[in-house]
């Protein structure tokens, strides 16, 4: 039986070898898990957020500027159809933490934060006094405005100009409400050519300057 002492030695050697193999497999496992990242999910989230703030998007008024009036109209099906969210992927869009649109039921997932400008149009009314002249400068830029011209008897407003451009013109007199479009890139001075006297209240200008603030658009995609 003397030779059988080899067997325990072999057993111990195999045991050690097995332990080493298990350790190596464990290390390989850790390395593989550590290298895993949701590449497609990240790409999808980045692409979706890009489309949401692009100048063509229906919720923006220009690149990176979200139109507050259009935001509530954003729906889950918009995300899938207009902004190309993959079918089967879930997504959530939030603005400063408040959910705007949710497609599916995202749990976890990859999140992309973007700093955007939130633009809101506010209505302002101006009633020029016309003390020394027949013109008025709009204090803020606006893409459009509404003029209400109600001259007193004996006064005829013949034309209205924005800087040097003629907006309205009627030789027999302008009276009533007019929608005019203006350039939002320059400050506008409206001049009225009249025969007779204009005073406070005869002309009412409603215009829509932009009110902006910074906001964070958060897009989460769960593949």
């Amino acid at each position: 039986m003397r030779a059988q002492t080899e067997l325990p030695a072999i057993g111990i050697a195999f045991l050690l070898l097995t332990v080493v193999v298990v350790l190596v497999v464990g290390a390989a496992n850790t390395a593989l898990t550590a290298a895993e990242r949701p590449a497609i999910e990240q790409q999808e989230a980045a692409g979706l957020s890009d489309q949401l703030v692009s100048q063509q998007a229906s919720i923006t008024s220009r690149a990176n500027v979200l139109d507050a009036a259009e935001l509530p109209a954003l729906t889950a099906s918009d995300l899938r159809q207009e902004y190309d969210l993959s079918p089967g992927h879930d997504a959530r869009v939030r603005l400063d933490g408040d959910p705007i649109a949710v497609a599916g039921d995202p749990t976890g997932g990859t999140t992309v934060d973007r700093l955007v400008v939130l633009e809101r149009r506010v209505e302002r009314t101006l009633q020029p006094a016309f003390t020394n002249n027949r013109s008025v400068t709009l204090p803020r830029r606006t893409p459009n405005a509404t003029l209400e011209i109600d001259p007193p008897a004996g006064t005829v407003v013949r034309s209205v100009r924005a800087d040097d451009r003629i907006l309205l013109r009627n030789q027999s007199g302008l009276r009533g409400e007019f929608d005019i479009s203006l350039s939002r890139y320059e400050t506008v001075r409206l001049s009225f050519e009249t025969a007779g006297v204009l005073s406070t209240g005869d002309v009412r200008i409603v215009y829509y300057p932009a009110k902006t603030r910074k906001a964070t658009l958060t897009v989460t995609v769960d593949a």
Binding site: I40, E44, G47, Q56, Y83, D84, L85, S86
Partner: peptide
């Protein structure tokens, strides 16, 4: 096999 929907501008 993998698949991804491309996010491209309309048009």
């Amino acid at each position: 096999d993998e698949s991804i929907t491309l996010s491209l501008p309309a048009g």
